[in-house]
Amino acid sequence: MSENNLAFNDDDFQAPQGLSSHGITTYPGASTSTERDTFSGAWTSPQAHNVGGIFVTINRENVPEWFENTKEKLERIFNLPENWDSYGARQIAIGSALGTIELILYLLEKNIPEPSVVPINTGGVQIEWHMKNIDFEIEIQPEGIFDIYMEDLSNEFDEIDLEFEKPEFRSDIEFNDVVDLFMEKINQR
């Protein structure tokens, strides 16, 4: 049983590749990560082979106060061992970890409030908000799917339950509309 050995360091690494005004990269490390799917059993992804850590550079002057807390949560859950829930949960998959970081960097641009961040037994991650009569959850699945669920307990809008492919989420109008709707409602109330 090995740890993912993922680090999340925003202080001293300049990423050569960027995501918007931020950068994420991975670097070769000694550890490898075995992933699984439900159809063919265990497999080792080429990406995971080369991932020993995740370093993030944030080129934003006004990072919210909550970010430090969230960063610590991410570091902890990315390094959870197998069976962290005592019911046989998988370690957090590399794809979920990268997707979570990309998503949180995107949400920083939207000035979103502090999320709760929880691991899922499938190797995924969920970030979620429950405030001002709104339940808003985004599940980041190991396969690169974002599953969004939003419910307004005030019934001003219908329940939203949608899936998005991770690579396209930044430019997806519907995805942006959902996040903007959440921000609009919590700012109004």
Binding site: R36, T38, G41, A42, N83, D85, Y87, G88, A89, R90, S116, V118, I120, N121, T122, Q126, E128, E137, E139
Partner: peptide, 14 residues
Amino acid sequence: PTSKAFQNATPERH
């Protein structure tokens, strides 16, 4: 608990 605390076990672990 988060909603995701209520999941079926993964097939391989089961």
